[in-house]
C-alpha cells in the first residue's frame, strides 16, 4: 500500500513537471561553412533554386497572427503551400482560423494556387520539403510533384 502511494505521488510529480516544462525552440546556429546542413527556423528555404520570396511573405503573415505557433511554406512558380500549427487553446476555432488564413493568402497571392493546412502531418511534410529544397536543391518539377502529393494528403478525410 505504501509502495503504491509513493508510486502515485511520484507519478503526480512527473506529470506536473512534464506539463509545466516549457519547450525550447529548436534553434541551432551553424558555426561556419555552407557544407554543414543547416536546420533553419525561418520556415522557408532561403537558398533554394526557386525564388522563395512569396513563401517568405506568407510565413511572415501567418506567424504574425496571435493564434499561430509556427508556420512553414514552399512555393513554386504557380503553387504556394503553407502549413502551420494552431496554438493549443485556439484549436477550438480551427475551422474559422483555417478559413481566414486561406482567404487572406488568396488575396495576398492572387496568381498562385494556395494550399494551406493546419494539419500536423502536412506541417511535417512541408518542413521536409523545405529541407530538401535547401539542402538537396530540388528543382521545380520534383517540388511540384511533392506539393501535389501533400495536397492529396491534405484532402483526405476520415
Amino acid at each position: 500500500m505504501n509502495m503504491r502511494k509513493w508510486l502515485l505521488i511520484a507519478l503526480a510529480i512527473v506529470m506536473v513537471m512534464g506539463g509545466c516544462a516549457k519547450e525550447k525552440g529548436v534553434k541551432q546556429q551553424s558555426m561556419q561553412g555552407t557544407n554543414l546542413i543547416r536546420t533553419n527556423t525561418d520556415g522557408t528555404a532561403k537558398r533554394a533554386s526557386i525564388d522563395q520570396r512569396p513563401a517568405e511573405r506568407a510565413v511572415a503573415y501567418v506567424r504574425s497572427r496571435d493564434d499561430i505557433k509556427d508556420a512553414v511554406a514552399v512555393n513554386t512558380r504557380k503553387k504556394l503551400l503553407v502549413a502551420y500549427q494552431i496554438k493549443h487553446m485556439d484549436r477550438f476555432y480551427r475551422k474559422q482560423i483555417e478559413k481566414e488564413i486561406h482567404d487572406h493568402l488568396k488575396r495576398l497571392f492572387p496568381d498562385y494556387q494556395i494550399i494551406s493546412s493546419s494539419d500536423l502531418k502536412i506541417f511535417w511534410k512541408t518542413k521536409e520539403l523545405v529541407d530538401n529544397l535547401e539542402n538537396k536543391k530540388w528543382d521545380e518539377t520534383k517540388t511540384n510533384k511533392q506539393i501535389q502529393k501533400i495536397k492529396r494528403l491534405s484532402e483526405d478525410s476520415a
Binding site: D119, L120, K121, I122, D156, S157, A158
Partner: peptide, 14 residues
Amino acid sequence: YMYFFDFTEQTVGN
C-alpha cells in the same frame, strides 16, 4: 501512425 505512415491528423483516428 502519422510519422511512419501516410495518415493525417484527420485520418489517424481510425
